[in-house]
């Protein structure tokens, strides 16, 4: 009975947390629609999200494209189907690897930083101080970060799409003996608008998830340095799991027919 009780408590706690996160997110979004707007803070978050994450996302994308080219060549050469490699690299990178890996990288970089910053503000009374200065913390701290996540990750992922395919091209032509013109022609021929749209849609959803988790756990952190550390860990872990879960859901929605 104790085990069942504990399971029930955990499920209820999980549902409660999920509900609180949704309400928190809706509150943040509602502040995006009502003035005052903090353009300067949005810009700062956007630059942090997009510009400063570019190196890590770019490297991840390039190496992923390179690995996919190598692995698919190893597998497909057994069946004499190496001509499909350009297509495999394109689909793998654009549909899956670029949005998912960019999301995970940004969750580790930006989501963790958001949770740590807001958590520190919470435990040092800076969030309370905002309220005493006639400023709604949800509007000032959360809304600009949600918008930055929504807009910045799609841009990053478009860059990652190009660089990932470029990484595959590099290996295919420099190591595997593909003719550059043919590889590019095959890639362009296989390029599908729906794949790019899916990539961007996934990126927008993952961007919101990263911002929401970072803000939610940071904003609600308690208990000093240990609480801030726990909030940061929770933000990264939750964002990573949700990114993978929503990746499946979105893929199912787009390609289940």
């Amino acid at each position: 009975m104790n085990a069942i009780g504990a399971l029930g408590r955990n499920v209820l706690s999980l549902l409660g947390s999920a509900g609180a996160m949704v309400l928190f997110g809706l509150s943040g979004v509602s502040h995006l629609l009502r003035p005052p707007f903090y353009g300067r803070l949005f810009l700062r978050s956007f630059i942090d999200f997009a510009y400063f994450s570019l190196p890590v996302v770019a490297l991840t994308a390039i190496f992923s494209g390179m690995v996919i080219a190598l692995q698919s060549y190893t597998g497909f050469s057994r069946y004499g189907a190496t001509s499909a490699i350009a297509n495999i690299v394109l689909i793998s990178v654009v549909r899956e690897l670029a949005p998912v890996l960019a999301g995970l990288m940004v969750a580790g970089r930006v989501g963790a930083a958001m949770a740590a910053e807001l958590g520190t503000m919470r435990v040092t009374d800076q969030i309370d101080a905002l309220r005493t200065l006639s400023t709604d913390p949800m509007k000032y701290l959360v809304a600009p970060r949600l918008l930055a996540g929504l807009l910045a990750l799609p841009l990053l992922v478009l860059v990652a799409d190009v660089l990932g395919v470029g990484g595959g091209f590099l290996i295919a032509t420099a190591k595997l003996g593909f003719e550059p013109h043919t590889y590019i022609t095959n890639t362009v021929a296989f390029l599908n608008t729906a794949d790019v749209v899916l990539s961007v849609v996934k990126a927008a959803v993952f961007g919101i998830i990263v911002s929401l988790m970072g803000c939610y756990y940071g904003y609600n952190s308690r208990g000093g340095a240990q609480g801030v550390g726990a909030a940061t860990t929770s933000a990264v872990v939750s964002a990573s799991i949700l990114i993978l879960a929503f990746d499946y859901v979105l893929t199912e929605l787009f390609f289940s027919r």
Partner: peptide
């Protein structure tokens, strides 16, 4: 309520300055 509270200035225990 907001207007009344805008009259209040608060010095926090650890100052609570915005470090950004």
């Amino acid at each position: 309520r907001q207007a009344l509270r805008a009259q209040i200035g608060m010095l926090f225990q650890n100052s609570a300055l915005f470090d950004s």
